[in-house]
Design a protein around this nucleic acid. Structure first.
Lengths: 377, 377
DNA sequence: TTGTAGGCGTTATCAG
DNA sequence: CTGATAACGCCTACAA
């Protein structure tokens, strides 16, 4: 269980119970003394209940040291006025916002449209956030930039960061550590550095994918990875290492040209693959993400290349997603929602101080077998 | 152009320019007097620069009434200390947060995984938000509940709401109006009420879809719409009205059974359609959203039903999305990204007071012809 | 052009 | 158990 204080939500729950009176009070107020619905503060409540702000504050925060009689009186006043505590003021006083910054590079937010990774991880995050009373603030930064993080954390806008993995500055982690800013990387497995991150074991994933195809008797295997500005994402570099390990283990020789870099946007990716497959027709294909996979699948359909008869396909990504493609794909499962959930939970632990040391969580990937891979005849 | 004040960002820009010194200062500080990197406030800057808080505040907000010399001194101090204004404090003083609440029902956030509508509209929103210096706070509510909105707006957490259309309380709009809360509905076309919303003309969309199939000579046409808790979403009710109009206009008789309600989740939707098509095999099908369409497409592939030879398909949704399905689908285009952008722009205008009256923006849908529809022989 | 002082709405620390 | 009172960090008349 997370040791997050639940006091701020007591009020909420109470208000829920008294729906009708609340609505009445509010509209009565709006049409009454004030044209521009003046906001009711803790002071208004205090006066109406004949107590001081302090007492109201205690009631609202469910402090035990307040008389039941007074408590009732205060609650009545609260409901009558339709009072809701001002979060901003509370944040200022407490130095805590109950908001998590979800950092997504602009590149990623652009890809978002077609890439199911983002919404899936977001679902995981919000699930936990809602449960624990946190909100998610969407932050799209230029990414690499330590200064931006610094800015934002100092503005005291958020209690911590969730950073969607990607090609970010390698020094970012230690910089954030230095600033004592709670953060967790999502999907950025960095065995070299001792940072906070949640990820699947990409090296292992690459290994599993390669091994699977090798065991099925394929020898002409290509690993197609997305290329961002001419270079590879770190998780893909690891997967390639695992892919190579599978070759080594099988006594097969690995070569550079087995790894094919493809553009990540659908349009150019499609054309690239089309011309690639015209020259080189492997029997096994590994695809590094959802977009690339969909693009490739479309191409195979358009070209009339049968899966798995003519070509076996293994994809990296969310297993659920690839269940609903046609054909459905054998996939090295990423558990993207788990990624989001776990990252959020870890972050909350760091914020509450339960965990202060760097705490990577790495999950072994599994391969989900479906109809897209087949034994070589 | 939007009349949003740009003052809060002056500081940001300046800091960007002096990257190196900033980093140095910050780490120097952290390792210096304070173990727990004490936050530097406007007061620290004031003292170092030998002025008062007021002056620093003016400098930071780029006020013209401050001497150039002092201005320089203050900036120097700011950079030396790595000062960043505290957003929470500023919000409290100003009564403005520069944050927009993006309200998504829990239902929607759950569907998110497979539904490209959400991320696409989000992209539109963040594009404008980033440009105008706003951040997006993700709010997932139980949806219908006016009390929740009231709560959140009163907590002064956001400057306005973007509400993702759906089965929300019909009174919600007027309730929000009463509370003088800036808001814009996205995708909720409600000709009856005079509220703020951005939408495509759903009635027209339904009409176009129906007309298209009728003109191709189809007479056995079904409209498959998602069913949420046994009832239809408002936009679908409108589309059905348009669909009916197309029938009326063609002198064909419309009947209830032409509208088929299907479960919105992939699993049960698939099974439902499967048993439905076993009994009733129309020649033309209209599908109301991305998920339903994908589900249906998968079924058709699995059952070996050829599109468009045996069945013509028209889908509602993002045109770009349906370009990348196989087969690609003739679609009544929603311009989902436009929806997000426009909604955000409208909301900002309402916040700044440029637009105070209810201001619906409705866009006529277009039909994008692709290979999934074909003349009846 | 700059400084002073009060306020924004809450919470926390002391007294009583 | 309850009430003053001082933070929290910034903004903004009003003075000087």
């Amino acid at each position: 269980m997370l040791a997050v204080s639940s006091t701020p939500f007591v009020l909420w729950e109470r208000l829920q119970e008294s729906a009708s009176s609340l609505i009445m009070a509010s509209s009565g107020y709006a049409g009454g003394n004030f044209m521009k619905s003046k906001k009711v503060t803790i002071l208004d409540v205090a006066q109406l209940a004949n107590v001081t702000k302090s007492t109201v504050s205690r009631v609202v925060n469910d402090s035990p040291l307040v008389n039941d009689k007074t408590k009732q009186r205060v609650w009545k006043a609260i409901e009558e006025l339709g009072y809701t505590p001002n979060r901003t003021a509370r944040s200022l006083a407490l130095g805590k916002t109950n908001v998590i910054g979800f950092v997504v590079s602009e590149q990623q937010i652009s890809d978002v449209v077609s890439n199911p990774f983002f919404p899936t991880v977001l679902k995981g995050i919000t699930t936990v956030a809602n449960r624990e009373g946190y909100n998610i603030l969407l932050l799209s930064l230029s990414g690499q930039d330590i200064k931006s993080y610094r800015e934002i954390i100092q503005r005291h806008t958020v209690d911590g960061f969730l950073i969607l993995g990607g090609p970010s500055n390698p020094k970012l982690g230690s910089d954030l550590d230095k600033l004592k800013v709670p953060y967790v990387f999502i999907g950025k497995h960095d065995p070299a550095a001792e940072h906070s991150y949640v990820s699947t074991d990409n090296e292992e994933g690459g290994y599993i994918a390669g091994k699977h195809l090798i065991e099925l008797g394929h020898s002409e295997i290509r690993f197609m990875v997305g290329e961002v500005k001419g270079s590879l994402l770190s998780h893909n570099i690891e997967r390639i290492a695992g892919f190579k390990r599978a070759f080594d283990e099988a006594g097969m020789t690995f070569a550079e040209h087995l790894v094919v870099k493809v553009p990540t946007d659908i349009e150019s990716g499609y054309h690239f693959m089309k011309s690639y497959l015209a020259k080189d027709r492997p029997s096994g294909l590994i695809l590094s993400n959802e977009v690339t996979s969909m693009t490739c699948l479309n191409l195979l359909i358009d070209e009339g290349i049968a899966v798995p008869e003519e070509m076996s396909i293994v994809s990296f990504g969310d297993a659920q997603f690839f269940r609903n493609t046609r054909p459905s794909l054998t996939t090295v499962s990423q558990s993207v929602e788990w990624l989001g959930k776990t990252a959020m939970e870890l972050l909350l632990q760091r914020i509450s101080g339960e965990v202060s040391y760097p705490s990577p969580i790495v999950r072994k990937p599994e391969i989900v077998l479906r109809g897209s891979t087949k034994k070589m005849r």
